[in-house]
Design a binder for these strands. Structure first.
Length: 561
DNA sequence: CGAGAGCCAT
């Protein structure tokens, strides 16, 4: 009897604790449906929904959101139309769905038609306008909305930042009543993006609670400044590193010419238990490109296949550059032809690849194909075309492309285009014409333009122009040793030894140090370094013998040509 | 169930 009573009370107790009201069942099922959609199991999610004896508005909303997040916008729309009862979230979800599919007008229609809006509706619509670069509309809504929260402000700040209106972004940031870590991060990355490192750093130091996202933005800032050691310190301080922070650090190394460290960090990343994604692969491929190390590049290419990123355009573009820098032109073409829809970067990349190897015909061919596919060339395309002419020594053609760019495509040449053209003119001994071109430029010549002129002067030993160009460069970039070295070389080639000594002395006074140039090659696991005049290599005599043979061979070939 | 942030290629 006692046992019976005990067990009965036990049962009653637990019954009340575990019994599911129909509301609980609906709630649990909704959560399950949402989770199934999140892992892309659409059919199973739908089956659960269909089998529900009773559904609430959240069930419908979960279904609607699940469909458009899996790329089935039309089904979301259909469900929205037939659902028995809608709440504000149903409407907001449809707004988000339209925005995701770039139907901004449809989104606004939902926004206007909905019976009542909450702050989320306004925020969704504002960020939609910002995504579609309709800033005026975003501002109008922001000003019209009855209440604003931290998300409204943050979305607007990000919008201003993306438009390059950093000042306005900052004003809003300062004026907002409450800031959270997202607002701080948006503002910091706005400064990083617009190369205002000190402002970014200042904000970062004042940020009360630094999460991994903000730290990653700051790491990017340090990397852009070339301060890799500082970036690494920040990176090491992160408590829980994620794929994005690893990618930022790897990219930093790759972009600062520290390919070995980028590759090493890729290994660390995998050891840390993180999978590399397309961002990682693009960056380590860039690292391989700068190292011109084909073996590692091919290994990464294998990873690209393994992780199924071989259809990613950016990855393919990075592969093209890698193979091009290693001189594997057949692989360059092979990767390119496998891209389903090459974008402007793909075309520019392959054009640049053949341009850099002086294969003018192929360069031209890809340019024609690009036009045939209806991709409009941009400034970078023309830069590649110009550089192709430079590598092939074709002055007339370069002037043709320059003219085509200006007059047929109505594009304003940038200083890089001028620098390229001036380089070509200089190499062909036309420094006077090159100087004329500088004088006719619609804007002030920069470091690159004067550098190209100075470099050109060594072909015709034009002392006057060389001195002028060197002077300009020293003014624009006082720490740069290149101008001093180049000028002194031109003096030396002209037999002006007293002037050579003068420049050397000037370098000491200005405390400019010549950077030693070196080249290297990796054979097996050994790295062989070579500096100019360096005879320390064990096989230096053999090397010199081979070089002499190559020179005489080249001369012989040139005679035939 | 809906709204805001960091990393990629010429």
């Amino acid at each position: 009897m006692l046992v019976w009573r005990l067990s009965r009370s036990y049962l009653v107790q637990n019954h009340t604790r575990f019994i599911h009201s129909s509301r609980d069942i609906i709630y649990a099922t909704n959560v399950r449906i949402g989770n199934l959609f999140r892992v892309g199991n659409i059919n199973h999610a739908r089956k659960l929904f269909d089998e529900m004896p009773k559904r609430d508005v959240v069930s419908w909303n979960t279904l609607i959101t699940g469909y458009w997040k899996n790329g089935l916008f039309q089904e979301s729309k259909r469900l929205f139309d037939i659902m028995p009862l809608r709440n504000v979230v149903s409407w907001n979800s449809m707004i988000a769905a339209c925005i995701e599919n770039r139907f901004i007008d449809a989104a606004f229609e939902y926004f206007q038609n909905m019976p009542d809006r909450n702050i989320g509706s306004w925020n969704a619509m504002i960020s939609g306008f910002i995504k579609c670069e309709m800033d005026d509309e975003a501002v109008t809504l922001f000003e019209q909305m009855p209440r604003r929260n931290v998300i409204s402000y943050t979305a607007m700040i990000d919008g201003y930042a993306k438009k390059g209106q950093i000042k306005k972004a900052r004003e809003l940031f300062d004026s907002m009543p409450i800031r959270n870590e997202v607002s701080w991060t948006v503002m910091i990355s706005a400064y990083v993006e617009s190369d205002q490192f000190n402002e970014a750093s200042d904000l970062f130091s004042r940020m009360p609670c630094k999460n991994v996202v903000a730290v990653t933005a700051m790491i990017t800032g340090y990397c852009k400044e070339g301060k890799m050691e500082d970036a690494r310190v920040l990176f090491n301080e992160i408590q829980c590193r994620d794929d994005v922070s690893f990618n930022a650090m790897i990219t930093g190394y790759a972009q600062n010419g520290r390919g070995e460290e980028a590759l090493r960090l890729l290994i660390d990343m995998r050891r840390y238990g993180l999978r590399s994604d397309q961002y990682t692969l693009v960056s380590v491929l860039a690292a391989c490109s700068s190292l011109a190390s084909l073996i590692e590049g091919k290994q990464i290419h294998a990873l690209v296949y393994k992780y199924r990123f071989d259809t990613d355009v950016s990855v393919s573009n990075a592969l093209i550059t890698m193979y091009s820098k290693s001189g594997c032109l057949p692989d360059v073409e092979q990767v390119f032809e496998k891209i389903c829809s090459p974008n402007i970067v793909s075309w520019n990349t392959i054009i640049a690849a053949f341009a850099q190897h002086g294969i003018y015909k192929k360069t031209l061919g890809f340019f024609e194909r690009m036009k045939f596919y209806g991709i409009e060339p941009d400034g970078i395309t023309f830069l590649s075309l110009l550089s192709a002419c430079g590598h092939a020594g074709m002055v007339m053609e370069s002037l043709y492309w320059f003219d085509l760019m200006k007059n047929t495509y109505n594009m304003a040449p940038r200083s890089e285009h001028y620098a390229c053209l001036i380089d070509i003119l200089g190499r062909s001994g036309q420094v006077e014409n090159a100087y004329k071109m500088i004088q006719d430029m619609p804007f002030e010549a920069d470091f690159g333009v004067w550098g190209a002129l100075l470099a050109g002067c060594r072909f015709s030993l034009n002392i006057k122009l060389a001195e002028l160009a060197a002077q300009k460069i020293m003014k624009l970039d006082p720490k740069n040793s290149g101008a001093y070295v180049m000028l002194s070389n031109i003096y030396a080639a002209s037999g002006l030894w007293r002037k050579v000594t003068q420049v050397r002395r000037l370098m000491k006074v200005d405390r400019v140090k010549k950077q030693t140039a070196y080249s290297w090659i990796e054979i097996g696991n050994t790295l062989h370094y070579f500096v100019g005049g360096d005879v320390s290599h064990l096989a230096i005599d053999d090397i010199h013998t081979v070089i002499k043979q190559m020179y005489s061979h080249m001369e012989a070939v040139e005679d035939i040509a």
